[in-house]
Amino acid sequence: MKTIANIFASSLGKKYIMAVTGFGLFLFVIGHLAGNLQVFLGPEAINRYGAFLQSNPELLWPARIGLLLMLGLHIWSAAKVSLENRAARPEGYAAYEPVGSTYASRTMLVSGSIIFVFVVYHLLHYTAQVQYLNLTGRDFRVFVDLKDRHDIFKTLVVGFSNGWVSGFYILGMALLCLHLSHGASSMFQSLGWRNDVYRPMMENLARVVALLIFLGYSSIPAAILFGYGREVLR
């Protein structure tokens, strides 16, 4: 019990929670990207992938619940830490220079909050498929391919053919990139798995991975806006 109390009540414990859940979400982001990139293999690959996921609810739902839990804890710790941080400096400086810190590290709360809004929209858009939110006037739920599977390929092409939606998606990914460029390395710091030797390596790696994630995710709406997959619309 003392261990649990230590983790949830102490400043360091909250950072462990943030780091561990961040790590879990980070892995999800990579896995999700790997799945999504199958869109470039054509409708067959991505629709098969979608059908595979949907056909295993015993795995899908625990994964979803786990992800939600991680997201919840990530946000809870962020909120708690931020409130405490604010209380720790009741009076600010007239002149303040944030020396030595990166823009990403100072804006984690802002980038995180916008990413959260993005995630909510994204789930409503493609998972719950709420029609009036996709701004195309079409109902994604009725898209079915020749093998009677949900036509994810078409859903994506239709969904991203709207510039506003794609734009918001790319913005979300840019902020995720910013968030991860700091978070992907600093989670190791919070867990104590970093030292002077590995630190520069990890910091650079985090930036590269964050950028690759951005490019990977953004490539889908970008490609669709540039005409990829238009044939399914005809």
Partner: peptide, 25 residues
Amino acid sequence: GFGNCTVTGSCEAVCPKEISLSFIA
């Protein structure tokens, strides 16, 4: 009542004895 570490690294930058952030890890 001190705040929490968000690993911005500004502490290390102003430390007159240049103490490394790695000690926090």
